[in-house]
Computed example of a mutant assay.
Amino acid sequence: MSYLTIYKAGSRPAQRANPDYFTGTVWLEPVIDAPGPARISAAKVIFEPGARTNWHTHPYGQTLQVLTGAGYVQVEGQERLDILPGDTVWIPPHVKHWHGARADSVMIHLALQEKEGGSAAEWLEPVSDAQYKAG
């Protein structure tokens, strides 16, 4: 009996992200969607220039690790912040936010979050072009 699961590189290719939850072109490359009782899910997220998430929250918060490119993250009611390679962002539970690439750059980040009731996020309305550009 094996206690490990190994996903070989390239065995789970990136897939286009659900356009109901993203603006622009975004690709998701799965890292882990652990079986219960574990709750962790993680993905490498590739944002083409100007692409972004909708506003959303996470039941247990979210950690973002920027791998390459340049992007933004914003909490509702606060100013938009720049994020760059090597930056790690912690978003607390139930905090409404969005993240994505700058208009002139691809951005790739690792997104880690925990699921509650099978869901890791509550997806809300899109980030308007005006909100995105407002900075």
Rank of each mutant, 00 (worst) to 15 (best):
W55P: 00
E29H: 08
V73F: 07
A70Q: 10
Q65G: 13
H58I: 09
Y60P: 12
T53A: 15
Y60A: 15
P49I: 12
N54P: 03
V45N: 03
W27N: 02
G61K: 07
T68S: 14
E79R: 14
Y72I: 06
S41N: 15
G69A: 11
T25P: 01
A34C: 14
T63Q: 02
G50K: 01
D82V: 14
P49A: 08
I83V: 10
L84F: 10
E48I: 01
G69K: 03
I83H: 03
R80D: 03
G61A: 12
P35R: 07
L84R: 10
V26I: 13
V26R: 04
T63M: 05
L67W: 06
E79L: 11
T63F: 03
P30L: 00
Q62F: 04
G36R: 12
E76T: 14
Y72E: 09
Y60I: 13
T63V: 05
G71W: 01
G24A: 05
P59G: 13
G24W: 05
L64P: 00
V75M: 12
Q62P: 08
R52W: 10
P30T: 00
K44Q: 08
D33H: 15
Q74R: 14
D82Y: 08
K44P: 05
E29Y: 04
H58T: 09
A43I: 06
P35V: 14
V73Y: 07
V73S: 03
G77L: 09
E48A: 08
T25I: 06
T63Y: 06
P37L: 12
Y60T: 15
H56Q: 03
V66N: 02
R39L: 11
Q65R: 10
L64Q: 01
Q78D: 05
I46G: 00
P37W: 10
L84Y: 08
R52A: 09
T63G: 04
L28I: 10
L64A: 04
P35D: 13
L84C: 06
T53E: 10
Q65I: 15
G69R: 02
H56Y: 05
T25D: 09
V26E: 06
V31I: 15
D82W: 07
A34K: 14
V73A: 08
G24C: 05
L81V: 13
T68V: 08
G24S: 04
Q74L: 08
Q62R: 09
L81H: 06
D82K: 11
K44A: 00
P30W: 00
K44D: 05
E29K: 06
T53F: 12
G24I: 05
T68P: 03
L67F: 09
R80W: 09
V73W: 06
V73Q: 07
A38N: 15
Q62L: 07
L84P: 01
T23W: 02
Q74T: 11
H58V: 13
T68K: 03
G77A: 07
A51M: 03
T57W: 13
T23L: 05
V45M: 03
N54W: 03
A34S: 14
V31Y: 01
T57F: 13
P49F: 06
A51W: 00
Q65H: 14
D82N: 10
Y72G: 02
T57N: 08
